[in-house]
Amino acid sequence: MSKLLVSTTVNGDPQQFLCDPDTSLLDALREEMDLTGSKEGCGSGDCGACTVVLDGKMVCSCLVLAPEAEGRQVSTIEGVAEGNQLHPIQRQFLEHGALQCGFCTPGFIVASKALLDHNPDPSETEVRYWLAGNLCRCTGYDKIVRAVMDAAAELRQDRRTAA
């Protein structure tokens, strides 16, 4: 079985990699591109630890075949901060202590950013349902939800200031 050559864009950078046809996008990110921030918690799309954004849509990268990334835009946790400048969601996670072990955190942050990118003013219920595909076993979600709500408020304020 010969490998496929896939050309894609990851966090704005052009990437090429070789993979078997049945390789998941998650494995390609982790094994071929050394982007280990996306985690595998289940491999079945149930835990959200591998959440990435594919052409603007939030997906579980364990359920996407790597060749499907051909010609598309992939955004991962590694691209959320701009250089050493943390995204407000990342900073709010730290200020709230919204992580304990931190293993689910990349998935939560990518998913939260996807939420706030299209809904800048979500209610608590909207945050909880949007993040219902991301499992956290440590925190009980309280501080995560608060961090996302506060990040949303901060981003709204930033936008008002910019306007």
Binding site: G37, E40, I77, E78, L86, L94, G97, L99, T105, P106
Partner: peptide, 18 residues
């Protein structure tokens, strides 16, 4: 803020499978 915080919110922290 915890000392290992930035590594854990940016995906840099190395866990068992990494």
């Amino acid at each position: 803020v915890r000392p290992d915080g930035v590594e854990k919110v940016t995906g840099k922290a190395i866990y068992g499978p990494d």
